[in-house]
Design a binder for these strands. Structure first.
Lengths: 132, 132
DNA sequence: CTTGAAAATAATAACTATTACTGTTTTTAT
DNA sequence: ATAAAAACAGTAATAGTTATTATTTTCAAG
């Protein structure tokens, strides 16, 4: 039973994440937290991100672009990756759990969780392409 | 315009993939193809897997376990990862495209594709735990 | 307050999956 | 047959992440 001790670095990482909605990567977190703690190491960032997601305070997500991203919003929701600019945005699908239940009808085992990732073009990129 | 030339190695990789439903990783493909072509290199396996997925003959998938997997079935379907044994199985959700259309109502941009991954316990692992 | 054990840190090494490079071999159209 | 394009094997390099280690910080008990 390993107890948790306070650390300013972890606090700073958590606070940073809570202020962002763009699902930053570990490296992005590192770059920003370093402004407050110039000596922080990337390993510390990774260790705390992993710890925080292990205890459920943040979630780690993978939208298929080869990097792990982190999200302070742990409520159930979905993500969309813009194939134009690469941004990762939230989508809150009402009744998303119905999809999981529905899928259960077509599978012999038990389904417990689902991850839905969309891909498309974000509204900003749409505007830009319309300006041509 | 780069033309495609035949290669036995690529043929063998494709044939191997078509005979499998378990979404092998590049390394698994490598292990098996090496039985027929002992000198094949992992780079060749990766290059051909990438080429085949680029031209749409196979698909590359990422179920969030840090490794790319490959699937000779390019028809739209979903996957479930067993959190017990790690296997990756197919789920064919009827009318899955309705989810994508539905999601469009809650997003300002354009959604073009979706990837749905489930997690749970496969029927084999359920049997084993029931035997206790 | 001290103190000391547990936890966290910075720095760095190691690891894993994947891609890039290079000189040689294979394919295939002429 | 030949020669240019493509693919190859072998190997090096890259990127993202985790592990190791010696030092520092946290914090409960005295």
């Amino acid at each position: 039973m390993k107890s948790l001790k306070y650390s300013r670095q972890r606090e700073c990482i958590k606070t940073f994440l809570m202020g962002r909605k763009d699902h930053p990567t570990a490296d992005t977190v590192y770059m920003h937290v370093r402004q407050e703690y110039p000596n922080i190491s990337l390993g510390t960032v990774y260790r705390n991100l992993t710890l925080l997601s292990d205890i459920g305070e943040i979630s780690r997500l993978n939208v298929g672009d080869g990097v792990d991203r982190f999200d302070a919003d742990t409520s159930p929701h979905q993500h969309i990756v813009c194939t134009c600019c690469g941004c990762v945005q939230d989508i809150y699908l009402p009744d998303a759990e119905k999809i999981l239940n529905y899928a259960g009808n077509f599978y012999g085992g038990i389904i417990t969780t689902q991850t839905i990732n969309f891909r498309g073009t974000c509204s900003d990129c749409l505007k830009i392409s319309n300006n041509n």
